[in-house]
Amino acid sequence: MKKTGYAQTAHQTGRIAKMRLRQMKIAEATDCSMEELEQMKEELARTISKYINIGNHDIHLYLKRGKKATILVSTVTLPSSLGDEAPEIMKRSS
């Protein structure tokens, strides 16, 4: 049989579902593709890393739906030497 490229991970898939839904919501609200969003995070990381020692994975995006507007929020997780634990807000980011 041919090999597929699917990961076939059948473990805790509920979390994967939630992460994908978050990404879809951001992509739909911003009218950006997933690729563009990744690119945006990389560019943000590049800029910020000039000042703070962070990497690509330290930038997170999430949406906040307000009454009048939807807000795209970007958070930066600081290296542990600078900050304490990830703030509450990080639990909601993708």
Binding site: A10, H11, Q12, G14, K18, R22, K25, R65, R92
Partner: peptide, 19 residues
């Protein structure tokens, strides 16, 4: 049973997404 073993989103998860 799927929620319990982490293979289905919980009520809280869905509520968080749909707001």
């Amino acid at each position: 049973e799927l929620v319990r073993r982490g293979d289905m989103m919980s009520l809280e998860d869905i509520g968080e997404i749909l707001e």
